[in-house]
Simulated assay, not measured.
Amino acid sequence: MDSPLVSVIITSMGKEILKKSIKSVLEQTYKNIEIIVVVDNNLLFTDSITKNVKVISACEAHNANKSRNIGIEEAKGEYIALLDDDDLWLPDKIKIQVEQMQSVHKEGHYFSYVQTALMKNGVINRHVYPKQGIKKNEKILNYFFGHSKGFIQCSSFFGDLELFTINKFNEEVIKHQDWDWLINAQKLPDLNIDFVPQILTYYTVNSVGTSVGTKQRWRYSEQWFDNYKDTVTEYAKSNFYSKVILRSLLYDNSLTTTEKKIEIKRVLKNISIRHSFTYFKSLVKIILFFSKSENNIN
């Protein structure tokens, strides 16, 4: 088997945490790799680890999708792999994805993703996501929020350059960017989605509101989801409202308690009582939140 060049695109704010992600790429057992780091402005540190890395300024883009597109345009590789600067790869990640691609890919565009372990405050969670791959003809949002309980995170993305070129990241999307890309990619008639059932990525989980991806943009999430609500099952819709919108709404400090309660009642109407477990979990989530808030006041 040949060893095609893989372009690794890392998007970053330029902080020192980037060094760990670069190190995890440099330690890959697959060596035919070019590393392109797209920073929001400039690197905020100096270190020899960047000597073999192409660093590009996104001119204060403040937009991960724009940064990804810039990196993809600069890529020389036959294949693209994406990595966020607070995530890490295990050493065989690219090697295994290349080998899997070469063993199963016949024609059309190829995309693969791997199992991911969650990492918080440097501690690796023993739980692994996802447990199973996406089924043929299963819609992305149904895979994520339906009974499959799927999970595809950007730092596990791997695919051919042309796929990322014709299906660019939508720079107007400010949240759920990887989900949005996947939904659009799935519209391509010749896309092959492949799942590698091995833990090869560590994904950093941030507390609600502590990073760009977790800020309380629940109104935007609802507007974004409205574009795709006709493609999902009622069960997936209920889970989306419970896990994404309600979770973020509860921590929206811009709302008064009265405003928050009004919005919660409205959101609950989108969580079907027919799916009793999801509905009950949502109620428990609300009760615990307000109970904790009252205790903090007292």
Rank of each mutant, 00 (worst) to 15 (best):
H105E: 08
D92I: 01
D160E: 08
E172K: 15
Q97I: 05
M101K: 13
N121A: 11
K139A: 14
V128T: 07
H127K: 12
V123H: 10
G122Y: 02
Y79A: 00
K51G: 00
E99Q: 13
S48V: 14
F144C: 09
I96A: 02
E172D: 13
A58I: 03
L90C: 01
K135C: 11
F158Q: 03
K120T: 14
G146E: 05
Y79V: 02
E162R: 12
H147Y: 11
S156E: 04
K168Y: 00
R126L: 11
V173F: 00
V104A: 10
N125Q: 13
K175H: 00
H127I: 10
Y129Q: 11
N137H: 14
N65Q: 10
N142K: 06
G108D: 09
L118R: 10
S48F: 12
K131G: 13
R126C: 08
K66T: 15
K76S: 12
S148M: 10
N65L: 01
I124S: 00
K76Y: 03
K131R: 13
D160P: 06
K51C: 02
I72D: 04
I49W: 00
M101V: 00
H62C: 14
S103C: 10
H105G: 04
Y113I: 06
V173H: 00
H109L: 07
I140E: 02
K168F: 00
S156R: 02
G150D: 01
L163H: 05
E172M: 08
V55E: 05
K93R: 13
K66H: 11
L118S: 10
I174R: 05
G146V: 06
N142R: 05
L88C: 05
S148C: 11
S57M: 04
L161A: 11
S155A: 15
F151H: 15
Q132A: 13
K93M: 13
L88H: 01
G133I: 06
G133N: 11
M119K: 06
L163P: 05
L88D: 09
V128R: 04
K106P: 01
K136Y: 15
K139H: 14
D85H: 01
F169D: 01
P91Y: 03
K76N: 14
S103L: 14
I94C: 06
D85N: 02
P130D: 03
N52W: 05
E60W: 11
E171Y: 08
R68L: 15
C59W: 00
K135V: 09
K131M: 12
K168N: 05
D160L: 07
Q100A: 14
I56Y: 02
M119L: 14
Q153C: 15
E162H: 11
H105Q: 11
S48N: 13
I94E: 04
L88G: 01
M119N: 10
R126T: 12
K131C: 09
